[in-house]
């Protein structure tokens, strides 16, 4: 007899009082799909970092231009091509924000700029304040990206949804059209459209939308087709649900994850194309600026005035990386199957 057994008293051999309900009890609180997804997203450090960076840049791009007294097109050739100078930080030499250019000349003294004038990101060749231009440019890049993505979303969801939901001949015709459009390289269409429409905020947005919605419509269609034949939708249909109810209660909520993830990736895509177009001279025209046009202008004089390219390029890179991190995080959170 082992030690443990000796301590057992006969009264332990009475039937135990077990609550039969307890056996069925679920120990963990149940989370809805969205609560669970949000919990997973919060655990993803990269995605949260991306989210904060995006929110920060959006808010900052709205506030920042009001912090200086210079407008986006305030030209003053007397103060052209000034390197950055920031009050306070100018004393720390290695930061390079003390008004000294790459050849070691203090441009502020040479051009006898008043002592109380500071250009935090420097000025461009027309003496415009780069700080104002960078943040206004960020506003415009973001505006175009969000607008284009929103329109793409509406068209894509409607087209894909109708095509998948009605199926049959409707789907056939609609998909043949998409197949041909899908074969056309978006680069080509976008460039052609800009040439015809003349570059501008609206024409760029339109050019992005013209091909952009196809990707969204294909994803929505694929999702809805797979959902349509799932048991819970069939069950709801046999219980007499109307089409409207099927769409609003079953199909759309279950497609929402894919739609959100796709949108998170179309936004950086739109930012990229806008800056790309600006870079090859088809984008935003002066005096208005976008991140892409600022970078393009900056690269033209990068050997002498690197500050002109570095700041808008940094903002662009941070935005692109943040949206990609957030998109990856959302995909992992909303599609647990993809989680690795």
């Amino acid at each position: 007899m082992s030690m443990s057994e000796r301590k057992l008293t006969p009264d332990l051999f009475r039937p135990a009082n077990l609550d039969s309900n307890k056996a069925e009890e679920i120990s963990k609180p149940s989370l809805s799909f969205w609560q669970d997804a949000f919990r997973r997203l919060k655990q993803n450090k990269g995605a949260m970092l991306g989210l904060f960076a995006i929110v920060f840049i959006i808010i900052f791009s709205l506030i920042a231009p009001t912090l200086t007294k210079y407008g986006i097109d305030d030209q003053e050739l007397m103060r052209s091509n000034l390197p950055p100078k920031v009050p306070g930080l100018e004393k720390i030499e290695f930061l390079g924000v003390n008004g000294v250019d790459i050849r070691g000349v203090n441009q502020y003294e040479m051009k006898s700029v008043p002592k109380d004038q500071y250009f935090w990101f420097g000025t461009d060749n027309l003496g415009r304040d780069q700080w104002t231009r960078v943040w206004k440019g960020t506003q415009i890049s973001l505006y175009i990206a969000f607008l284009a993505s929103a329109i793409e979303l509406i068209i894509g969801v409607a087209y894909g949804g109708i095509s998948a939901f009605y199926g049959g001949r409707t789907d056939d015709v609609m998909q043949r059209i998409v197949e041909i459009l899908y074969g056309i390289p978006n680069l080509v269409v976008i460039i052609l459209f800009i040439i015809i429409l003349d570059p501008g905020i609206l024409s760029i947005t339109l050019a992005l939308v013209i091909t952009g919605w196809i990707g969204m419509s294909r994803i929505v269609r694929a999702q809805i087709i797979s959902l349509k034949n799932r048991e819970f939708v069939l069950a709801s249909r046999t219980l007499g649900s109307t089409n409207g109810r099927l769409i609003s209660k079953h199909l759309l909520p279950n497609t929402l994850g894919a739609i959100i993830v796709t949108s998170t990736f179309t936004i950086p895509g739109a930012i990229f194309f806008e800056s790309f177009l600006s870079f090859i001279g088809l984008g935003i025209q002066p005096p208005v600026a976008s991140l892409g046009s600022l970078i393009a202008d900056g690269f033209r004089s990068i050997r002498i005035y690197p500050h002109l390219a570095i700041y808008p390029a940094s903002v662009l890179c941070i935005l692109m990386i943040s949206f990609n991190l957030l998109g990856d995080g959302l995909r992992d959170a909303l599609d647990p199957k993809m989680r690795r």
């Binding site: 057992l8 332990l12 051999f13 009475r14 039937p15 135990a16 077990l18």
Partner: peptide
Amino acid sequence: AMEVCLEN
């Protein structure tokens, strides 16, 4: 089940 089962 008896009481002994739960602990031992």
